[in-house]
Write a protein that binds this DNA or RNA. Structure first.
Lengths: 245, 245
DNA sequence: TCAAAAGTGTTCTTATTACACCCATGG
DNA sequence: CCATGGGTGTAATAAGAACACTTTTGA
């Protein structure tokens, strides 16, 4: 076993791209680093994985220490391991993204959280380490995941309007969707529960409130359900597709 | 920096699910382990990542040492890091799959390759470490990737018939495709170059040979091309989909 | 009564599916 | 002349895309 000893000198971390949705914008929770390296720069929340800790556990821990949230949607995206990506030595990082209801988020007292702040994804330009690249990868993955699984709901409060849901999809997919077509499709999926309630205190006709019917979704999944939300196609861009059978 | 020293005691490997296509079957290249742990069991080719080596480089190295092949399609899939997955200590592994033209493969003299062998993916039941789980993940990823990018060609010789291509898709997607619909779609994508050649030495009408027009694909990509090959739908299974705009 | 957002149907076009026969070749 | 796989078209159905006006509420 001694022949392998030289390999047991590296470390790995998890980094967590925590997405939230607020004021019509997709946001990401960043931390202002209080220590070297990259002191003073914004970075993704992340930490070393403890020796007795699984990767998913570590990602959940990072999330919980920062936000207090548990049982949140979490997806492993990609591992980044450029040789010199970390000044302390060889450190590879496993990138995750998670989806939180932004109003559930309470700043935790942990020191790491002292300088945490939500940033619109579209406005983030630079981050510590290779975190900007990680953010890009996770955002791309979110875009694609959201079209195949009904995970968008994880970003909304339990009760939401169809317009809120549409704005969420528009923010993630970076496109505009047609209101009538969107509603037709979403309601046609039969995954939203009409709560027979309406918004209150809005200066216009109040919208109906819905919630995601998770139980029904699980049943559909068991039957081979296929959730698919396509990217909006700009009229000018003719799409080439190949679909066999 | 000493506070982190305890973290720099782990290692990471890459494991490579090398897919090939032969005799109508999707195959995976496995190695019979000649040393502990799991001596005598079939395993995925993989090795520790060297301290000065990027992850992709390591995956390519593992592939080249075993097959002699370079410049092969390679895709990172997922990182596996269960605490006790490796008996030597904390070792996480970054799983890749690669696609090779099985006839290009020549067994390399490297000792690691001494017991390498192609196995039909569908017949693999058990592997060393958590490699069976890794194989499953990579196979699922291949299934999904092959529908979105024209990577199937990587598994075929440079010149192929439409029937060969169809069989390849059928093997990967584990479904049957309709010959006429398949051809209509594939040819309609305008990505195959008719070589004005036909098969020779077959006891039936010889099929035309095509090759993948990579240059045209790159041009299409630049223009926002969208390659999409859908899963064949069984008639009995009604598909539920949601597609907005 | 106005502003603001909610809500709603139809038509057109495109893509998918299902399906069966003739063709060219080697043995 | 037969066995084998190659090659082809059309019609029916389903999904996607485009598009504009009425409704409800609070201020």
């Amino acid at each position: 076993m001694t022949e392998f000893d030289n390999f047991f000198k590296s470390a790995f971390t998890v980094d967590n791209v925590i997405f939230g949705f607020d004021e019509g914008d997709l946001k990401v929770l960043l931390i202002k680093r209080g220590e070297a390296p990259y002191m003073g720069q914004w970075a993704l929340p992340g930490y070393f994985v403890y020796p007795n800790e699984d990767l998913d556990t570590a990602a959940n821990r990072v999330l919980e220490e920062l936000t207090g949230l548990r049982h949140v949607y979490l997806e492993q995206v990609k591992t980044f391991g450029a040789v010199n990506r970390h000044p302390f030595g060889r450190v590879i990082t496993v990138a995750y993204f998670s989806l939180v209801k932004i109003n559930d988020y309470k700043l935790q007292p942990a020191s790491i959280a002292r300088k945490a702040q939500w940033h619109p994804v579209s406005e983030v330009k630079e981050l510590a380490f290779d975190h900007f690249e990680i953010l890009q990868s996770c955002f791309q993955r979110l875009k694609s995941s959201v079209r195949w699984r009904p995970i968008g709901f994880e970003l909304l409060p339990p009760h939401f309007t169809l317009t809120e849901l549409q704005h969420l999809y528009e923010a993630i997919l970076e496109t505009e969707l047609d209101k009538r077509n969107f509603r037709k499709k979403i309601l046609g999926m039969d995954l939203l529960l009409d709560l027979d309630q309406t918004q209150e205190g809005v200066a216009h006709r109040p919208a109906k409130l819905y919630r995601f019917d998770r139980e029904k979704y699980l049943r559909f999944q068991a039957e081979g359900f296929n959730f698919e939300l396509k990217e909006g196609q700009r009229k000018e861009v003719r799409k080439r597709r190949m679909e066999a059978v």
